[in-house]
């Protein structure tokens, strides 16, 4: 539909108006949070909707210090970083095995890994919680890292397997003829070649882990991640909207930044599951 007639251009211009409003609505909440985070509580109560008059960073200081967001932030960084690292290594190993190596029941294993997507955490909430307690993983960061890996793994394995399956088989065979062992093929050939897919998965999984609240609520009950911290902030300072807004800005900033920098990668990753390629 490359060429467009004059009539059609009119339709497109008319459609652009509601689309622009929709776009504004997508930016509004972020503006709302930033704008109100810069007000003091009195300033917010006096003028809840207008632009901030004399911006103050007091709320960020309070959120970071007294409301313990520095601790939450560290927890989120450690847990997200750890989970993404484990996810990438595990998924790359499994993807390589499924796409390149030959062994009995290969297809069945692939289906079992995909089928575990049918079991979201809500479906196994009670036994999952009991498992975490039974393994002594309650209130440990490693417990949350392993849980995130288990719950975000199938898509990562799927994507790595699809990526490796599209590479020419000769790569592995040539390396084998040269005397490389399978782990060497993985480490020296597949891991470097898989970089584009690994970067995409790294970003997507960072979003998922950073944004999660349910698994984090269950596993880390004493310490908190940022998203649990926000729910706590709402409870403890329910009347202080600017402070809550500051917490929201602190929690959202890394993700928005990642989105702005890696937009194309994220788009590619999301399209990967949908479009045969």
């Amino acid at each position: 539909m490359a060429t467009v007639g004059r009539r059609e251009r009119k339709i497109l211009w008319a459609a652009s108006v509601p689309m622009a409003l929709l776009a504004l609505s997508c930016i509004y909440p972020l503006w709302f949070a930033i704008n109100n985070a810069l007000k003091d509580n009195r300033g917010y109560i006096l003028d809840r909707f207008g632009w901030v008059n004399d911006p103050t960073f007091e709320n960020f200081v309070t959120a970071w210090g007294r409301a313990r967001f520095s601790e939450y932030f560290l927890n989120s960084v450690v847990v997200t970083g750890g989970a993404v690292a484990v996810l990438l290594i595990t998924a790359s190993l499994a993807g390589f095995a499924l796409a390149v190596l030959r062994f009995p029941y290969r297809r069945l294993v692939f289906i079992v890994i995909l089928a575990s997507m049918m079991i979201p955490v809500q479906v196994v909430l009670v036994p999952f919680y009991k498992t975490i307690i039974g393994l002594g993983l309650l209130n440990t960061r490693i417990g949350l890292i392993l849980s995130y890996t288990a719950f975000f793994l199938p898509f990562s394995v799927y994507l790595m397997a699809a990526f490796y399956a599209a590479l020419p088989r000769e790569l592995t065979e040539a390396a084998r003829v040269d005397g490389a062992r399978f782990w060497q093929v993985w480490w020296f050939v597949m891991l470097p070649l898989g970089t584009p897919a690994l970067i995409t998965l790294g970003i997507l999984n960072t979003l998922y882990c950073w944004n999660d609240v349910l698994i984090s609520l269950l596993v880390l009950q004493r310490e908190r991640t940022l998203m649990v911290g926000i729910t706590a902030l709402r409870g403890e300072y329910s009347t202080n909207v600017p402070l809550l807004a500051a917490g929201i800005v602190l929690a959202a900033a890394p993700i928005v930044l990642i989105y702005l920098v890696f937009q194309r990668r994220i788009v590619a990753g999301i399209a990967a599951g949908a479009v045969k390629g």
């Binding site: 595990t90 575990s116 079991i119 009670v126 036994p127």
Partner: peptide
Amino acid sequence: KAERRFAALFLLPSLLLLLIFRIIPLFWG
């Protein structure tokens, strides 16, 4: 034989995690 052994080794972490946190809990639940 080597290929099969490596495949099992490489799939082990994924399968273990899925079994422990998702598949066994489903039946347990």
